[in-house]
Nucleic acid binder design. Structure first.
Lengths: 165, 165
DNA sequence: TTGATATCGTACTAAATCGGTCCTATATTA
DNA sequence: TAATATAGGACCGATTTAGTACGATATCAA
């Protein structure tokens, strides 16, 4: 039906991490290590988010990801859209919002409840902004064994340098 | 994560049908024929709903299902609980509401967004009552080829007698 | 009392999805 | 030029979903 699965959770964790970094770049590896997430999967997720503009990416040796939009401009619905598979996206006719998928709930009045349910759920997801869930300014819990050096930024935010092996 | 799938839709359709029957019994077969739903699957769904008290069942030749509770007392959350598989139910520790499933989102502060998301979703489902979705008094769309006889009840509701082969 | 109809409980299966991996290519920087 | 990072795929095993099957039991009607 719609992508409310583990990927959504991992995406939220990654976005919270990026929000915490305050515009700095963080690599997929860094996030994966910090939260013990499977790296290749997290990379896929970040790729999806990037292609939808939810994060921005920079390649190369000092590259990584940063937030691509203000948290209050991105909804859970945007997130699920970004994360759902290509098959899923083709269920509904291009641009048409999430409806009944590939199986046919026809327009008969008795199917009203189904449509009402789907449309309520969609509205809920659209109204839930990332800013409501991701509270910035939290401390990142970096496993101590990976921390190489802690530095103090000029803006008062403390940064960690990590060994990511 | 939680059961927002085709079963949920079928259940809503069946419940709307039952609500429309105003307390009369309707058999699984009748509902399946009326809405072209796969009968064995619908039977499983109704069994699940029955075991949770959302519908009531009576066996035998004139038996079937009727609503088991007022629509405004049953939430979408109740519905998903009734429909989720046994494995799912065992994910969370008995009575504990839907949380992070079997994979461990630990208590670290960075996982707050995940918990916030899950708890918001749960609250949404709990607050959405069937009465908000299922509008009683709708006409049932019975395929005309199955209608044997239409009768007029004393309460003004018209009933159909169907050939269900 | 017997047959038809209905649910109950449980087990089963094919197909789709999910969670996760891997590989090659490309971009960036030290 | 080597190291590091993302981009864009294809790929795979395990789980879940959607749907089926079947024997047992309950109810009612003829």
């Amino acid at each position: 039906m719609l992508s409310l699965n583990r990927k959504t959770d991992y995406a939220l964790i990654a976005l919270a991490y990026l929000a915490d970094r305050g515009g700095q770049f963080a690599s997929a590896r860094e996030i994966a290590v910090a939260h013990a997430l499977p790296l290749p999967l997290l990379m896929n997720i970040l790729k999806s988010l990037n292609s939808r503009g939810i994060v921005r990416s920079t390649r190369g040796v000092r590259g990584g990801y940063q937030l691509g939009a203000a948290l209050d401009r991105v909804s859970l619905y945007d997130l699920t859209l970004a994360l759902e598979g290509a098959e899923r996206a083709s269920d509904r006719g291009e641009g048409e919002p999430e409806c009944c998928g590939r199986y046919k709930i026809d327009a008969s009045p008795m199917h009203g409840p189904v449509h009402a349910f789907h449309s309520r759920l969609r509205r809920f997801l659209q109204e839930a902004k990332l800013s409501d869930l991701v509270v910035p300014g939290r401390r990142i819990d970096v496993p101590v064994e990976h921390v190489v050096r802690r530095t103090k930024q000029k803006n008062g935010v403390s940064a960690v340098e990590m060994q990511v092996s």
